[in-house]
Measured scan of single mutants.
Amino acid sequence: QLWTVEEQKKLEQLLIKYPPEEVESRRWQKIADELGNRTAKQVASRVQKYFIKLTKAGIPVPGR
């Protein structure tokens, strides 16, 4: 299922709330739990694509 604008905005906020961890899967699980309707795997996939998009555009990656 496609990500809504609201989900993307919340994801961006949660990336700041939950900074990078030694075991990133824990971070994705915390974010997924707060989103409520996404799995950690879906979050990880979305974040990877989002970070690539930001990097290509020369925009700083949130939480890094």
Rank of each mutant, 00 (worst) to 15 (best):
Q48C: 06
V23C: 15
G36T: 11
K10A: 06
K53P: 14
A44G: 07
K41N: 11
E21S: 06
K41L: 12
Y50P: 11
W28C: 02
T55L: 07
K30W: 02
N37R: 08
L15E: 00
W28Q: 02
V61G: 10
K56N: 05
V61N: 12
K17W: 03
V23E: 13
R64L: 14
E24Y: 04
K10V: 05
E12Y: 04
R64M: 13
W28P: 00
G58A: 11
G58W: 03
L15Y: 01
V61T: 14
I59S: 13
A40K: 04
A40E: 08
V61Q: 15
K56P: 12
T39F: 01
Y50W: 10
D33K: 07
D33M: 08
Y18V: 04
Q29V: 10
Q13C: 04
T39S: 11
I59Q: 15
Q48M: 11
Q48A: 12
L15P: 01
K17N: 03
Y50E: 15
G58C: 05
L14Y: 03
T55A: 12
I16E: 15
P62A: 11
K30R: 10
A57H: 10
V61W: 06
Y18N: 03
K49R: 09
E24V: 07
E22C: 07
A57T: 10
A44T: 03
Q48Y: 09
E34V: 06
Q8H: 13
W28A: 02
P62W: 06
K17E: 07
R26D: 14
K30T: 03
I52E: 15
V43I: 09
L54V: 11
E34G: 05
N37C: 07
K56V: 03
P19E: 09
D33G: 07
I31P: 00
V43K: 00
K17M: 10
P20E: 15
E12R: 05
I31D: 00
P62S: 13
I52L: 13
S45T: 06
R46F: 13
S25F: 13
V23H: 10
R26C: 11
P62F: 05
Y18K: 00
K49N: 13
A44L: 09
P60N: 12
F51L: 14
S25V: 12
Q29P: 00
I16N: 11
K10D: 04
I31Q: 00
Q13N: 12
E12K: 06
R38F: 07
L15V: 06
T55G: 12
S25R: 09
A40F: 04
V47R: 00
V61K: 12
G58D: 14
K49S: 12
S25L: 08
K49A: 10
K30P: 00
W28R: 00
R38I: 11
Q42V: 04
L14A: 07
V43A: 00
Y50D: 08
Q29L: 06
E12G: 07
Q42M: 08
R27P: 02
I52P: 15
I52D: 15
I31E: 01
R27N: 02
F51G: 15
Q13T: 12
L14V: 01
E21Y: 02
V43D: 00
R27I: 00
K53I: 03
R26V: 13
Q13G: 14
V61L: 11
E34P: 00
I16P: 01
Q42E: 14
F51I: 10
P19Q: 13
L14R: 01
E22I: 09
R26Q: 14
K41Y: 06
P19K: 07
A32Y: 01
E24A: 08
I31Y: 01
A40N: 04
G36I: 07
L54S: 15
P62D: 15
P60A: 13
Q48T: 12
Q13F: 09
N37Y: 05
L15T: 02
E12C: 04
A44D: 04
Q13M: 14
A44M: 11
L54W: 11
P20T: 12
G63C: 15
N37G: 14
Q13K: 10
T55V: 08
E21A: 03
I52Q: 15
L54R: 14
L14C: 03
L15K: 01
S25E: 15
A57R: 12
Y50S: 14
E34N: 06
D33H: 14
Y50Q: 14
K17V: 06
A57F: 11
V47A: 14
Q29E: 14
V61P: 14
E24N: 07
R46W: 10
K9H: 09
R64Y: 09
A40Q: 06
Q42I: 02
I16C: 05
L14H: 00
F51N: 14
K49G: 11
E21W: 02
R64P: 15
A32C: 03
Y50R: 06
Q8P: 01
R26L: 15
K9P: 00
E24H: 04
Q42S: 08
E24R: 03
Q48P: 03
Q29A: 09
S25Y: 12
V23M: 15
L15C: 04
Y50M: 12
K17R: 07
A40Y: 05
P60D: 13
K49Q: 11
N37S: 12
E34S: 07
N37V: 06
R26K: 10
E22P: 14
K53W: 05
A44V: 05
K56Q: 12
R38A: 06
P60I: 05
Q8C: 03
E12A: 06
G58S: 12
V47Q: 02
V43S: 00
I52A: 15
E22V: 10
P62N: 14
P20H: 13
T55M: 07
N37L: 05
A40T: 12
D33S: 08
I16L: 10
K17H: 03
A44F: 12
V23R: 08
E12V: 05
G36Y: 05
Q48N: 08
V61F: 08
P60L: 07
K17C: 04
I31C: 03
T55N: 11
S25G: 13
Q13P: 01
P62L: 09
R46L: 11
L14F: 03
A40C: 09
V43L: 02
Q8R: 04
L54I: 09
F51H: 13
R38C: 08
T55I: 06
